[in-house]
Design a protein around this nucleic acid. Structure first.
Lengths: 345, 345
DNA sequence: CTGAAAGCGCTAACAC
DNA sequence: GTGTTAGCGCTTTCAG
């Protein structure tokens, strides 16, 4: 890696002092330097192909102009749009993002966190928040700037950017009720995620409000495999698709819903004729699934934008805490939801 | 952001010089320091919660321990696994990745490149290579370390990690030939990507070799929308699904293939009964599409791993050029490919 | 084995 | 307006 030209080289060529070059090449100090010298310096810089060293500047200013992003797994389709949203806000402001995957494991999360702190990131966007989260609490106590996205950690004053879980689930249940479903199964996510809890509670409340028989089974993970296993078991136990069973499934997210679609078709059940399925998140390609998925659309890109905004605002204002922003979510009806089977409506 | 503990604080507490602390806290120099002092220093560091400043170290060593990743769009499902592969190789070696999206636009790519160079990344993984690529040539001339992944730029000596495009397409055509298809349409990607060209040429060669009527239409983009438009048009022009038309489609990638599936179903054609479709890449959820997609599996995670490996090796060896690694790709047969319609086999 | 000193490339007072 | 002078936090000769 070459590119060894420094501010000293530019100074020498322009016949001025390093300090002057620094002032000249910084937008907010360039008016302090004589227009003629300014031009001379700019020219020298261009001729030499000078590229400012952001690392050195960061060391001096003690600001690295980088922010860390902690997420479970980039291959989960909800995260790429969030990351792009974050990037789209940061990039024009001179920041870049360092993304680290934790695979939901504490040890990896700790390692990633340490690596980011060693690199002196100016703040963190955290998509791995859990209900009881020692690492996050520790970060807060050490006055590390952070914003939570998609999930929160109750009792922590960090800002958070979340989707409207309650509204989304309420809309899903209302939609199924209108289709005359009287018994619905909810595939809930792990209880350590606030988002899972919010959706599960909202499901129960909505069912009670409408006099619908709502049943909840909890999934150990938010994955396709877990959803498939859960629904296979539900079918075996006659919890769904039987006279006494549920005629619809509301899944805590689209991966579980996709697992449900797989299980139904492998068991010879049709969707939506035998069982309706509703997801949550509206991930990419949800409309292209074997049965196009009815699901709640969540504006992930915007979530990333808002998270980055709150983070930078907190850094500037030197405040750790902040507001919780809740973005609207709304149901997108596709083919996976239909009228309850005759006789069970 | 607090965490203001420096090496000087540790030195003071342990009653030694900064230099000694530095030696003590570095794995490859710690044997130079007396075991007793070593222990004392480690203890002091722990008590103070000392976290080494990688940025400062980088400035001194002129190595940032970061590498940049230039890709078109993280929401394209081929890239997350590549990024994770890169990360999995870098992370245990103390490096982190800075990911930048270019959306296929030169201006954004240039801006991202500049931003990465300003941050003094130690090297670049480039997934945006094009046939004639001024930026890459410039980077090479400036002795910037880089490795190309997924696409290459002919004439540039940078190492590259690619999939077996020729083998994959050959296998696809062989598969369709075995299903008695005698006329096949290829949806080719933009000619500026080596990968598109390789697949397109391989398609033509394979068809010639088997006496199959192979027709190629070129797509302006590797997107679902482009694939859908192309196939709609092909249907309108009776280029497929007619007596004289093709009974199968080989798409340059899965997004085009998905567009094809959408177009077919919107035009009332059945897949695979009327038209078979074969993709390339085997992106996540390809098996869950409205018709589970027959496609060529490419080991993207491994591609990322190999790219990162070649990059770090080049950095250590101070070599810019390197080998081209070609990873095996093989056909995964699913429901989207079936026997040619009777009468046209 | 440890201390001293210099310096990576830059910025920010403070002089002049 | 511009030069001078200190460092930001760390590593790395060179002495001793």
């Amino acid at each position: 890696m070459a590119v060894r030209v420094t501010i000293a080289d530019v100074a020498a060529r322009a016949g001025v002092h390093k300090g002057t070059v620094s002032r000249a090449l910084n937008a907010d100090t360039e008016q302090l330097v004589n227009p003629v010298t300014l031009r001379r310096i700019q020219e020298a810089a261009r001729e030499l192909g000078y590229v400012p060293n952001v690392v050195a500047r960061g060391l001096r200013r003690s600001a690295s102009m980088t922010i860390g992003v902690l997420l479970p797994d980039l291959t989960n389709p909800v995260f790429p749009p969030i990351v792009r949203g974050i990037e789209s806000y940061l990039s024009p402001r001179g920041y870049t993002a360092l993304v680290a995957n934790t695979d939901g494991r504490d040890s990896l999360e700790r390692a990633a966190y340490t690596s980011l702190v060693q690199r002196r990131v100016d703040g963190l966007v955290i998509a791995t928040a859990r209900v009881d989260h020692p690492l996050l609490r520790e970060a807060y106590e050490r006055e590390v700037h952070a914003v939570m996205v998609q999930r929160a950690s109750p009792g922590l004053a960090y800002p958070a950017v979340l989707g409207d879980d309650v509204g989304g689930v309420a809309e899903s249940v209302a939609h199924l009720a209108a289709l005359r479903h009287r018994s619905i199964l909810h595939l809930a996510g792990p209880g350590e995620f606030t988002t899972s809890r919010a959706r599960s509670d909202a499901f129960t409340a909505a069912c009670v409000a409408r006099g619908i028989a709502g049943r909840v089974v909890q999934s150990p993970a938010l994955s396709v495999a877990a959803g498939e296993a859960l629904v296979r078991e539900a079918i075996a136990r006659e919890v769904i698709a039987q006279d006494q069973g549920a005629s619809a499934i509301v899944a805590a997210n689209d991966l579980l819903a996709l697992g449900a679609l797989r299980a139904l078709s492998s068991q010879g059940l049709r969707c939506p004729q035998d069982v309706s399925v509703v997801g949550f998140n509206d991930i990419a390609f949800a409309e292209d699934f074997r049965t196009p998925l009815t699901t709640v659309h969540v504006p992930f890109h915007e979530m990333g934008v808002q998270a980055a905004r709150l983070l930078l605002e907190g850094i500037v204002a030197e405040r750790l805490d902040g507001e919780t922003v809740r973005l609207p979510a709304s149901l997108v009806v596709r083919a996976s939801s239909g009228p309850a089977p005759a006789g069970r409506a």
